[in-house]
């Protein structure tokens, strides 16, 4: 089983965490009729890279912190993890 490093708790089995998906920015003007496509892109469309992807994780069976990981989606190597707006670890 893969291990993932919680910025708060350190490396833990990935089964302790919940994955929320690729990091996407929520458009601030999504309600604007002219921005409907951009809003739909935010809701549904993803890069779905086969490579390093920035994504959300939640330490569900642990400290309850949400954080961002940069993880390779093929090798599962995790380059770094960090809180939103925080410094990258490792």
């Amino acid at each position: 089983m893969m291990q993932l490093e919680c910025p708060n708790c350190g490396p833990r089995n990935v089964s302790e965490f919940r994955f929320r998906g690729e990091y996407v920015e929520r458009p601030h003007d999504g309600a604007d009729p002219a921005r409907r496509r951009a809003w739909a892109e935010y809701l549904y469309f993803r890069d779905n890279r086969a490579g390093v992807q920035k994504e959300w994780w939640y330490h569900q069976a642990g400290c309850g912190r949400w954080f961002l990981a940069e993880r390779h989606t093929k090798s599962h190597a995790v380059e770094n993890t960090r809180y939103w707006g925080g410094e990258a670890t490792s």
């Binding site: 998906g21 690729e22 892109e41 549904y44 993803r46 890069d47 779905n48 086969a50 989606t73």
Partner: peptide, 18 residues
């Protein structure tokens, strides 16, 4: 499973997660 990668080659984004 690889469809997003092929679509990206044509500049198309898909609502897909592998």
């Amino acid at each position: 499973g690889w469809c997003s990668l092929i679509a990206a080659m044509a500049g198309v984004r898909l609502p897909v997660e592998t």
